[in-house]
Write a protein that binds this DNA or RNA. Structure first.
Lengths: 143, 143
DNA sequence: TTATTTATTTTGAATGAGTCAAGATATGCT
DNA sequence: AGCATATCTTGACTCATTCAAAATAAATAA
């Protein structure tokens, strides 16, 4: 899915050009799950030192809109990205250090997706963020 | 709960001073649910023209940490606040116009709060944001 | 393969929500 | 009323992200 051929097909199907920055960004996010933009820029530049930050921003936005990436941005934190997509998993964020971990869905396939009263909204996604303390910060706080 | 006496008690219990900006901010948020900071600043200044933006930022942060307010900040949007607190309700955000509505909990009291695998995190809150289209934008899109 | 078209990228400046810091002010206590 | 200091005002500053114009390179056709 996230292989080199995979992205080419998705991009071409969307009438988008297959460019070095785009492929590199997808690879970088795949290699660094939950990385922020700065980290992704650095990772991309390991292989392609001339790629601009703007190209990374553009690629992240494009790949996200095409469904190849997912953006995570908890309150008070900058945006992070992950390549794990389409399996309806959620995230835990540590209130203390900001570290982030994946959490599989609690109840079956798409829990929480059926709100009791939509106010007429059509809902296509339920995003869940759990807040708490990571193991590290728990011990630090109590120590 | 959100009355003038209510906030005084909460502030005093927390050893915080009862100041004009704090009371005004709580009143403004109560009167303008889901308002962003800019809107709250304007609302506060209707009554108290000399209150600084910094005081509003500080008050919002304090009142939020005391549990009198709740901050909502969907991806790509600036922070908004609401005074409805402690009833575990969630929000729908329109992908098109960014409008926001309350949604009561889908399944009983605290759904989704029990993630299957915490990775050792202690979870104290499950935040749910539904994404979709508001009634207005639905008709605009299809029209 | 080379020329052509134009989507993307580079570069560098700009935006703007939010934060920082120092001095002025007002709250709560005695 | 007067004191101590929490809070506010003012104004500069941060920094993730966006904007814009010129340069570049991907895709198509000759």
């Amino acid at each position: 899915m996230t292989t080199s051929e995979g992205i080419e097909k998705v991009l071409r199907d969307a009438s988008m050009r297959v460019t070095r920055p785009r492929v590199a960004v997808l690879a970088a996010v795949t290699a660094h799950p939950h990385a922020d933009t700065e980290t992704i820029i650095e990772a991309v530049r390991q292989e392609h030192p001339t790629v601009s930050h703007q190209a990374v921003y553009d690629s992240l936005k494009l790949l996200t809109s095409l469904g190849l990436l997912r953006q995570i941005q908890p309150h008070g934190h900058i945006a992070r990205y992950e390549a794990r997509v389409g399996d309806n998993h959620h995230h835990v964020v540590c209130r203390s250090c900001g570290s982030l971990a994946d959490v599989d869905c609690a109840v079956g396939a798409a829990p929480c997706l059926h709100a009791s009263d939509h106010h007429g909204f059509t809902i296509d996604e339920a995003e869940v963020i759990y807040w708490g303390l990571c193991p590290n910060c728990q011990s630090t706080k109590t120590a």
